[in-house]
Design a protein around this nucleic acid. Sequence first.
DNA 1: AAATGCGCCAACCGCAATGGA
DNA 2: GTCCATTGCGGTTGGCGCATT
Length: 353
Amino acid sequence: MGRHSCCFKQKLRKGLWSPEEDEKLLNYITRHGHGCWSSVPKLAGLQRCGKSCRLRWINYLRPDLKRGAFSQDEESLIIELHAALGNRWSQIATRLPGRTDNEIKNFWNSCLKKKLRRKGIDPTTHKPLITSELQSLNVIDQKLTSSELVKSTGSINNLHDQSMVVSSQPGPWWFPATTTTTNQNAAFCFSSSNTTPTVSDQIVSLLSSMSTSSSPTPMTTNFNPAPNNWEQLNYCNTVPSQTNSIYSAFFGNQYTEASQNMNNSNITPLVLDHHQDTKSWASEILHYTEHNQSSEIGLEAEVKPDIAKYYWRSASSSSSPNLEAATLLHDANVEVYGKNLQKLNSMVFDQSL
DNA sequence: AAATGCGCCAACCGCAATGGA
DNA sequence: GTCCATTGCGGTTGGCGCATT
């Protein structure tokens, strides 16, 4: 292997191509074809390496290039292909005549990624962001709870608590910092960077996408209602887990609540009609926390009540989306990373005056 | 008007794969 | 089988232009 021989040559031009250079290269290849790229610059009278000439031809001078903005169809196709092929840009480019791999890659990195994130979709997995993040959190949790370090802290009963004790890692970027809840375990999460989107960013984006709808509809096509379509029922507010923190369930203190819920025959009347749904939800949490198994359903069951609560409210409210997001975060006693926090808190405060 | 920040995108870089001697 | 020139690919960089402060 080793470096291309042209890389050792001196006095070769780099950087942007001048119109004169373009003309020389275009004229040469039009008349003779490119043949061996390493000999092209010499024959065309260019002070460039063959690699640079090849790139310029493929990405800019080729006559069959389409140019211009990507159409909606092209955009959809790229997303579809990326979901199937990943970052295999050259393969994706073969399905889009007149487009280069570089062009598609740039379009993806500068535009499509953000677009998907705004829609609440993870651009890497093409799944809803919250589900993806839960999966990665699940992996972390599995690693932590299976480590020798964790097992050695025998004085702590709850496996999740053990994880927290030995971990100095920051939490996932979306995990909310809680300052008013009793969930002490979450303290390890609070030192993360603020360079990634906050929970509120996601919620605001979800609100934006939902603001045109007059009645609740599934948040995304991949986000299946579970369990038992319960989010269409207005008992979201009675699910006990959500009082303190949206995601705190993951760290163990939902165990007690779920356990109580399973045995409690005095659930509020609104919930009573759907007792089986609640039991189902609670059993998933028990399954997860008690057996420390990776139950994706269990995780979603924990998070969905809060999403649905938020969703229900936003769909039936005439308030502005940002205020709805702020209200949700405030009600959940959730703090988020980044500069949005103060803004959100003040919005809620102003509203309550 | 100047400084700063930010997004876009052309081009570069390094590595892997390929093919011929 | 080995070496080496060449090609192809994907990640990254840096400069330009526009927007904001």
